[in-house]
Design a protein around this nucleic acid. Sequence first.
RNA 1: GCUCGAAUGGUGGAAUGGUAGACACGAAGGACUUAAAAUCCUUUGGUCAUUGCGACCGUGCGGGUUCAAGUCCCGCUUCGAGCACCA
Length: 924
Amino acid sequence: MEYNHRDIESRWQNYWRENKVYKTELDKSRPKYYVLDMFPYPSGAGLHVGHPLGYIASDIYSRFKRLQGFNVLHPMGYDAYGLPAEQYAIQTGQHPEKTTTDNIARYRSQLDRIGFCYDWDREVRTCDPKFYKWTQWAFMKMVESYYDTALDKAKPISKLIEHFEKQGTEGVHAACSQELDFTADEWKAMDEKQKSDTLMNYRIAYLGNTMVNWCPQLGTVLANDEVSEGLSIRGGYPMEQKLMYQWCLRVSAYAERLLKGLEELDWTDSLKETQRNWIGRSEGAEMRFPIAGKDVELEIFTTRADTVFGVTFMVLAPESEYVDIVTTPEQRKEVDAYLDSIKHKTERERMIDKKVSGVFSGSYAVNPLTGKEIPIYISDYVLAGYGTGAIMAVPAHDSRDYAFARHFNLPVIPLIEGCDVSEQSFEAKSGKMVNSSNGDFSLNGLEVKDAIAATKKYIEEKGIGKVKVNYRLRDAIFSRQRYWGEPFPVYYKDGIPHLMPESALPLLLPEVDKYLPTETGEPPLGRAKNWVTPEGYPIELNTMPGFAGSSAYYLRYMDPHNDEALVSKEADEYWRNVDLYIGGTEHATGHLIYSRFWNKFLYDLGYVVEQEPFKKLINQGMIQGRTNFVYRIKDTNTFVSLGLKDGYDTTPIRVDVNRVSNDILDLEAFRAWRPEFKDAEFILEDGKYVCGWAVEKMSKSMFNVVNPDDIVERYGADTLRLYEMFLGPIEQSKPWDTNGIDGVSRFIKKLWGLFYKGDNLLVDDSKPSPEALKAVHKLIKKVTGDIETFSYNTSVSAFMVCVNELSAIKCHSREALEPLVIVLAPFAPHVAEELWHSALAHDTTVNDARWPEWNEEYLKESMVNYAVSFNGKARFNIQVAAGTPQAEIEDMAVKNPSSEKWLEGKTIRKIIFVPNKIVNIVVG
RNA sequence: GCUCGAAUGGUGGAAUGGUAGACACGAAGGACUUAAAAUCCUUUGGUCAUUGCGACCGUGCGGGUUCAAGUCCCGCUUCGAGCACCA
């Protein structure tokens, strides 16, 4: 039988599907293992060869764990809500559901051809009402909860209401948008609207007026992680800051737990670091500065409390609510003009524009330590969203304050001994303090670190301020002015938001005539007919963002058909959390934060048993494209090969990589590619046209997209799988380069050659030779170790070495070949399955085999090679029988004729002996 | 600017502090063949030597620790990633 990948692969894929070989059941008698891929957004472009990289890696691990006897949960689904389908719907009028369903079908057929061991009975789609019922349900739970900062967990909002009824805000420990202060009587006196607004200040999912990232082109707000450098990640459109009344999630309440939780996770350091940066914890102090002549205090946040004696002015963010209070009538015009100029700038313009700008408010603040009056300015270099939106400016020790002070001619007071602030600020946090005393309290002579601590202590004692930890992490904006997302189970009665009853879930997404905002500027749901409750109250028009559906999908896979709960107690307690999660780094500050938050929330309420959703996480690298170029001689239709192009004035043109093989252009395919190349002429080198190449993002516009279907068709899924793993370390980004796939293809043919020669079965029951056993057991040991460390590339090499060795000694012994097939099965399941059945004559699937143990006995060498080195420099090798005593080997090394010249006229100082490796003779 | 990571042949990449370059691609030469494809064999880090053994140099740069450094330490350079008027 010849190796025929088409035949073998379709046969086994059918067999697996029809017999539900990979169906997983809850089985308490076996240990569980949960392997998860980040589920894909089914885009219209289909999969390219980069997408399956992580899927192949997780598939190998799943199959490996299964062979080791674990009950493996390995599901797949689709992150089906999202902007591209909706943009497409706007352009074509086609319902996004239709596009999405079509794309999913395409993805599925592409995935199926690669031979994954997913349990498709557990598939989820975020746009499926049976699924999004639980997204809506979790949102409702968040609305009905608040975060107790004393217990450090979410609790039902009813508990908070009880507290208000009894004591007002007295003794309340709750995360909130704004510190409130009212008595029980004041609470009771509030009307329904006031109570609703007050509770919104505490709910974990809340409606709030917040500064949001507004994207006019997309017509929606976006979360911080969907924006980069003032541009939307999707589409790259400019963003504006806008105050809007939006649903938000109080992720910030979980900042400390999200940070702490990282410690116990088996993630890469760089990914943890990314999350730490994003959470952005900074310890400092909050301090109050009275405003001269007014009964108001300015609150600021600083990490450098020690520099309070060097404060020469204060600055407010333009959006700060204090701006109105501190602006004097004389300065009103100037301030308004400044605020106006800021408003007209986009977020991006504000970021690019590093020019110092600002305006004096007319008021002065009083430094609480020195009693001195200092001017209050307004400037956009202070951010409204961080800290209190106001700062104390210490130009001597902060570069931004320094630039501002120089521009407005404000005094600069150096506070650290010997520092030079004539040209720039001194930002190092070391040195001895000077100029820092008010008679009563002095920091002079202290190290910066001690001065910070001393100041914090002092201000707390004097009631000027308090120690405070600030986080960069903001609450997540949860509303999107879009159609293709989960509707909010919220209606409005007299302008007050109410949750629908749980029995109303899932709240189905209504039909609309167009996917655009209404004429009055309302979101697309404003077009839906009868978008009201049975009682006639209007329903929320926003929809939820993409991350809503992806935040708890891993829980749903555990129990995907349950109509009573997101996940049953039993399933949750068995499957617990994801043991291995594989996906890209691009989700580091989005999905991977939101999921952790969501999970911790569900944990607080007792719905799940684990605090963290993803124990171990591997980031597969991106597969970049490898673009090929041809070189057209200017103003001609003649193309010159890479090696000769220097003699001509040429223009490089990207060429479809599928018309190029090993950088050699297929001339006929090129002529047929585009009408303008029909009559193309070529200047060849050695009869070939050699293309240039460059690494770029894999995309249609670069003509460098390689479709896995084509590779599977030509070489087979097993070759694709092995080759993707062979390409390099899984975590590393690398360009897709089809050059080299032949090596893997040859390997499979050689492997096949161990079992069949033509139609003859070669496998026999002879006793394998010691060399054969050694080759196979070396392989088992290597691959077992490699899989645990995800060094799949070296495993593939090990397979090649083993097969070469077995071929060389013509080993066809069943006893040696059987473990080889089992160990290969996770990597190349189709060929392994075929050999298992047809050549090794088993009637089980290879999945039912046991992962083989290696036997150290077989690995022992009869002769051992020692490198003899002098002063660490290896000079020659000696062969000694295994088990020779150390002293004898050392003696052989010294007395060897080759040693003579190295020992000549020298004395042996000592001999260092490394078992099985080296005899190092130190001479001098 | 701060933080993290990386740098090894023509290429992708191997190397628990212990003979650097496994494995693969590419290249060169050869066998088989009328020829090509396929397959197989040999060589392939550099320089010198080549009738033989070989010799020396080599893991971005400069130091250090060690009998021994691609690997550990210190100081740079370059590239990549994350954060960034975050006070």
